[in-house]
Nucleic acid binder design. Structure first.
Lengths: 113, 113
DNA sequence: ACTGTATTTTACCAATCAGTTAATTAACCC
DNA sequence: GGGTTAATTAACTGATTGGTAAAATACAGT
């Protein structure tokens, strides 16, 4: 079952280790060992996390001698950002004004039928 | 193992059914049956999805007679938005300028040692 | 009290997940 | 070629996930 792209991205981000890896890559390309160093975790575990991030298209990998450097590929985050934009108004409005807004939407919806 | 809040939120959003439920709630409070209607899924499955959303604090529930209406609680989305803000510059820069930026960061990092 | 409607709980299942250890591959250096 | 370092693959484990069917709970209307 091929999950949609948005679900795959959210899934990849739903792990603190993977988010820390992404954060680490904001300062530039890193090797797997570099990335693994801060974590109390074996290398295969890191390899797996990297695979999840790679499948989610959040990182890109290359080869340099015996190293497989990773770099950030932020485009899927843009999709998340766009998805979440649709909800921004709901937390930006104060609670009372949100209720007001929802009521208006519901009224409008009925008048649209 | 209590997952951190951000992971819980991402996890909750990593499912198209749950995102559709949230989208449905943007037009106002809904009963469980209302929410279940568009999906080819049994009620208990929806109940479970709602429980995930509730634990992630993305919805709130009340009681009205035999109904348990749900409404959107968007605050955790704000946290996601804030997290993702830290990455905005990486997709806003053009690819070439991003590479440039990362190289500068790496150079700077070395000169800082 | 009886019936129907709304919803949850329980018990189960198959698939996926996050980690491990041990073995393997790949490339470097001498 | 032999040894070292970097990283992955394979095989396993226990926990979690997303779904189901069937039973239980909660309330409303008559």
């Amino acid at each position: 079952m091929p999950a949609d792209q948005l679900s795959t991205t959210f899934q990849a981000l739903a792990d603190p280790t993977r988010r820390a890896i992404l954060a680490s890559l904001t300062t530039g390309e890193k090797t797997v060992s570099d990335l693994a160093e801060p974590f109390d975790m074996t290398m295969p575990a890191i390899t797996k996390h990297l695979k999840v991030l790679e499948k989610a298209n959040l990182i890109e990998r290359s080869r340099e001698a015996q190293y497989r450097p990773c770099r950030l590929h932020p485009e899927p985050l843009k999709d998340i950002d766009e998805w979440i934009s649709g909800y921004r108004k709901f937390w930006e409005a104060s609670f009372d004004r949100l209720e007001e807004y929802l009521k208006q939407l519901q009224t409008k919806e009925k008048s649209d039928e």
